[in-house]
Design a protein around this nucleic acid. Structure first.
Length: 429
RNA sequence: UCCUCUGUAGCUCAACGGUAGAGCAGGUCGCUGUUAACGACAAGGUUGUAGGUUCGAAUCCUACCGGAGGAG
């Protein structure tokens, strides 16, 4: 039954400064925010099944338009009842539009850069090397060359939404283009105008087709792009805020480069790549939030390192997705709390491969109540990791997902008690 | 007992008589809308031993020691 009294999809229930606790209603249940969303690119949060996800505290997960449409195709998934049914996850799903792949398979390769620059890849920013890419952008959309079989696929804004509706996504994202720190201002301006057109095309297609999709109560989020430039970001935020979206994703949060500088207390002379990696993301959130409707959930795309979570929540962000938790887990990097040695410098992680854990009978984190920490030692996990035992990937991923879910839960409680600053201090001092 | 082959990094193997290298293991790191169970870096050596030939030997010769195979 279509709700006559169009219930708000998002309700803010507590605030501390700009930070807020909210409840997001989706077609597959409610989500308490601020929330961390594990990434399940290909219809699976790598190494975890839906039950693992639940016990690890995941409320909502992310799926991917580009990957799922290449394989097994969104039409197949639709025929099998949609992504929820296909993968056995009955909770909320947010789907990315494929915009990130246009970037990561395109200019990110061409420019030889990483999403978030750091000192170790500064040289590549200084010396771009042009390499063959798998994605080309035009007004029509993104022309992909499949990384699987080399076949060509045109992803238009309309097609992106069609795919996401086929998947039965609860939160659909408009197709956007990310800007690389290597792009010049001319390119940036043209790209942003094109992204506006893509967003409107996405929205139109969504409005015309969602009612007939397998998830008629799906929502659609706009995306605010822009570079690391205060004025541009705010103008973009203003534009997106005027459109008929259910929420917003803040995209292109990727540090910065010497080309852009919109911050008052940073000059081209003092800016550094390291500074950018740690601060630019939070600054971007800070800049755009005042221009966004308070009733819109605010999602920061692709962000999820612990310091960034604190910085962005504090500035009014509600939702985060990030591959870091699960990728780090698989690569031997496991989250630890401050009392266990976690700090900004080590990104709140330990490297389980280190020789010092060879005989360590303690859990990863003695304060953690995840399944892994309740049952297994560092020594055992190190052994599994070095032996490349499959069990390692599951146990490590359970821990990292639980750890971030639990951290977000602590943040929600802290905000309700006006103690977010105190909690942040405990983590960052 | 004889014949053949073979001894190089912890392991498996490269290197025309001309600066001994690689993969793996082990070590230290990196990872932010996943092309990522991935990637980077450093370390690691009296080339089985003892002689000889040579400007120069892991490489050629001799002996010994260790291993594999064959014949008896």
């Amino acid at each position: 039954m279509i709700g006559l009294e169009a219930m708000a999809n998002f309700t803010v229930i507590a605030k501390e400064g700009e930070a807020r606790v909210g409840v997001l209603q989706t077609a597959h249940g409610r989500v308490e925010t601020p929330v961390f969303m594990p990434v399940g690119t290909q219809g699976s949060v790598k190494a975890l099944d839906p039950e693992d996800l639940r016990t690890a505290g995941a409320q909502i997960i992310l799926g991917n338009t580009y990957h799922l449409n290449l394989r097994p195709t969104s039409e197949l998934i639709k025929q099998l009842g949609g992504l929820h049914q296909f993968m056995g996850w009955d909770g909320p799903i947010l789907t990315d539009s494929g915009g990130f792949q246009a970037f990561s398979l395109g200019d990110m390769i061409a420019h030889g850069i990483r999403k978030v620059p750091n000192s170790s890849n500064k040289s590549s920013l200084d010396n771009p090397t042009l390499k063959p890419t798998l994605a080309k952008i035009s007004e029509e959309g993104v022309q992909f060359t499949s990384h699987i079989d080399g076949s060509k696929h045109l992803l238009t804004p309309e097609r992106s939404i069609e795919i996401q509706l086929n998947l039965g996504s609860d939160i659909v994202l408009v197709l956007d283009e990310l800007l690389s720190p290597m792009h010049n201002r001319d390119y940036a301006r043209q790209s942003l105008e094109r992204t506006h057109r893509w967003e409107l095309r996405s929205l139109k297609y969504f409005q015309e087709h969602v009612a007939d999709s397998i998830n008629p109560n799906a929502q659609i989020f706009g995306i605010v792009q822009g570079v690391y430039d205060k004025k541009i970001r705010q103008a973009e935020a203003k534009w997106v805020a005027e459109q008929d979206f259910d929420g917003i994703s803040i995209g292109g949060s990727m540090g910065t480069s010497e080309f852009y500088n919109g911050d008052d207390d940073v000059t081209a002379e003092t800016i550094s790549i390291d500074w950018a990696a740690s601060k630019a993301i939070a600054k971007t959130v800070e800049w755009v939030v005042p221009f966004l409707p308070a009733s819109w959930p605010r999602h920061v795309l692709g962000i999820g390192e612990i310091q960034n979570l604190f910085d962005c929540v504090q500035r009014g962000a509600d939702m985060f997705d990030c591959v870091a938790a699960t990728r780090r887990a698989r690569n031997g990097s496991l989250y630890i709390s401050p009392k266990q040695g976690g700090k900004v410098q080590n990104k709140y992680t330990l490297l389980i491969s280190k020789a010092e854990y060879k005989m360590d009978a303690k859990p990863i984190d003695q304060l953690c109540s995840c399944y892994t920490c309740q049952h297994f030692t560092r020594a055992y996990l190190r052994h599994l990791y070095l032996a490349k035992e499959l069990l390692y990937y599951r146990l490590a991923s359970i821990h990292n997902v639980y750890f971030l879910s639990n951290l977000m839960s602590q943040m929600r409680e802290a905000i309700q008690n006006q103690e977010l600053q105190k909690l942040k201090k405990e983590w960052t001092d």
